[in-house]
């Protein structure tokens, strides 16, 4: 017992101060939203788009459009670019409310997720119970959703918890491309959640199918089965990106002052 107490003292208080205080430091090589400096692009160059494993990049009339739902945040486009036009933002907020907001021009600001409105905000703003459903996820997204429950992040201080049954839940948090073999189970879980309910899709697979886009064995993401209220891009998203998305949805007052982020370099 004494040893437990001593260890407790040694290990210290480790919950992050965010969002009231600063966010934890991101790694120096962190890859947020890929940014394209089109001034460096020669006419007709398609190398980044050609290298993209998920066709997340489209180039038309000198503009580069990126689908953050498909983006794996890998280095393939940056590696393929001969002119160093591709860099990565260090901003972690990436969550949006509409699928169409995932597709952004290179010079366009990201329309970050707005808070739930009216009745839903009143119901869930201070208490949100989520049932997590993994539907073909690789355990990357699942691991970094799980980590939010550890003492470092302490998700429950925001009134958010992950519960065992969809009947105890206010919504689903879905990961994975939705395999054919999980389609029915996901639908049953969704139907078991009492109304009104919300659905959060986490990671490239749940947003678009990710690396598995157009496989016969998957359904190209959660939107094929259920309506989505919050899209959190990444492969997998950093825990801070997931937490930021959840807090924006609930209208956390420390975050809502920043509605959008400029594509800063």
């Amino acid at each position: 017992m004494i040893k437990s107490i001593l260890t407790r003292i040694q290990q210290g208080h480790r919950t992050i101060a965010y969002p009231a205080g600063p966010a934890p430091a991101l790694p120096g090589r962190f890859r947020g939203r890929p940014l394209f400096d089109t001034a460096k692009c020669p006419d007709g160059c398609q190398k980044c788009a050609d290298a993209c494993p998920t066709q997340a990049i489209t180039i038309a009339s000198g503009k580069i459009k990126l689908d953050l739902g498909r983006c794996l945040f890998c280095t393939d486009c940056a590696d393929a670019c001969p002119n160093g036009a591709v860099t990565y933002s260090r901003d972690y907020p990436l969550a949006v409310r509409q699928a169409s907001d995932l597709i952004v021009d290179s010079d366009q600001e990201l329309k970050l997720a707005a808070a739930l409105d009216g009745k839903l905000r009143k119901l869930y703003g201070r208490s949100l119970q989520l049932r997590q459903v993994c539907a073909g996820g690789c355990n990357g997204c699942e691991s970094d959703v799980n980590v939010l429950g550890t003492i470092g992040w302490d998700l429950s201080r925001f009134g958010i918890s992950l519960v065992a049954s969809p009947r105890h839940a206010d919504g689903l948090l879905i990961t994975g491309p939705v395999t054919q073999n999980m389609r029915q189970a996901l639908r049953i879980a969704y139907d078991a959640v009492p109304d009104p309910k919300i659905v959060i899709a986490v990671g490239a697979c749940a947003l678009s199918g990710g690396p598995y886009i157009n496989h016969a064995e998957v359904n190209n993401g959660a939107a094929s089965v259920v309506p989505i209220d919050l899209f959190i891009p990444g492969c997998p998203p950093h825990p801070l990106t997931i937490l930021d998305g959840l807090l924006r949805l609930l209208g956390n007052k420390n975050l809502i002052s920043r509605k959008s982020l400029p594509p800063a370099r």
């Binding site: 290298a51 494993p53 690789c138 355990n139 990357g140 699942e142 691991s143 690396p211």
Partner: peptide, 15 residues
């Protein structure tokens, strides 16, 4: 161009 990403996500905790 997808092959490496299949390998990375075969089991995401064993990338």
């Amino acid at each position: 161009k997808r092959t490496l990403h299949y390998a990375e996500t075969l089991a995401g905790d064993t990338t």
